[in-house]
Structures are given as structure tokens and as C-alpha cells.
Amino acid sequence: MSTIDRTGNDDRRSFLEKLVAVVLYALGLCVPAIGGLIAFLNPLRQRSAAGEFFKVTTLDALPADGSPMKFSIVADRVDAWNRTPNQPIGAVFVRRVADKVEAFQVICPHAGCTINFEKTQSGGRFFCPCHRASFDLSGRRLEDPSQSPRDMDSLDWEIRNGTEVWVKYETFIMGSSHKKAQA
């Protein structure tokens, strides 16, 4: 009789012990794991710099035939714990169309490679050497289907003081068929 009673008590007690042991181990491991995870996820809080206008060239320095030229965007480069002034942080293509210009981001919307310009007999084309996507002079995709999910990313521009070409330098979310500024 007493043996059975004791066994029943033991079962209950041993279940409680098991539960406490498991919970304590789990909680104990959660503390460093969650702390670590929060630190690991820190990049999610980081935002890209907002778009800003840069003076890249003057109208008369652009070829009259509409060939694009590539210009570096020079600004402070922020990386991890460093801020380095006057670094080439990106580049843009600018081409002249009569008294206006067209400006494009050099970064391919597909996977972020750098698009090149190739002069050809019929004017030229933009070409991404990584996955061979190509675009016409106005940045439209030439292949169907193209590797690139969208046309080249055009950039806002302004003509200031008569001839200065200013381009709003922005980066866009890659891999999507919609052009959306990177946040």
C-alpha cells in the first residue's frame, strides 16, 4: 500500500523535476541565443543614404550624338565603423538628347553587376557582362525574356545654371520588376 503511494508521489515529483530541468536548460540557452540573434539582425535597422543631387558634368561635355558617358559619384563612403570622405560611391550613365539628358544607374537591376556601354555600328547598347543582359540607349531591355526583371533604372536629373547637369544618385532594390528606391 505504502509502496504504491510512494510510487505515485515519485511519478508526480519526477515529472515536475523533468519539467523544471528542461525549462531551465531551454531558458538558459535562450538568453545568449536571443541576445546574439538581436545583434545578428542589426543590419535590418540600417538604411541606405537617401538620394541626393550631384553635379556630374556640363551639357557641352556630353557627345552630341547621344552616346552615353559614365561619371563617378564622389561622396563620403560609410562602411561599418569607417567614414571615408571623397570616395567614388557609385556611377551613372548620362547621355544627351537635344537639350535634355537621360541619366541611368550603372547597377544592373538583375543582380547588381555593373553595366557597360558598348559602341556599335548602329549607335550602341548597354550590356551587363555578368549574365549578358543588354539594353538599348534608352535603357530598355533588348532580349525577351531578358535576364533583367526590369529596364535600366533611370535617375532624376536637373539642368542648373544653364549647362550644369545634376543627377539624383539613388540605388534601387534589385531583382524586382518594379523600380523602388532602396531603403
Binding site: 543590419p43 538604411r47 541606405s48 561599418a80 560611391i89 547588381g112 532602396q182 531603403a183
Partner: peptide, 20 residues
Amino acid sequence: VGQHLLKLAIGGPGPALGSH
């Protein structure tokens, strides 16, 4: 979640890779 995955992989907002 693509944009978030990219940030986690390269340790920053991109598009450039860096120390992180």
C-alpha cells in the same frame, strides 16, 4: 523578405559589400 535577406547576408544596407 529578399531585401532583408540581402542586408543580413552582407551585414549592411548595400548595395556595396564592406567590412561587415
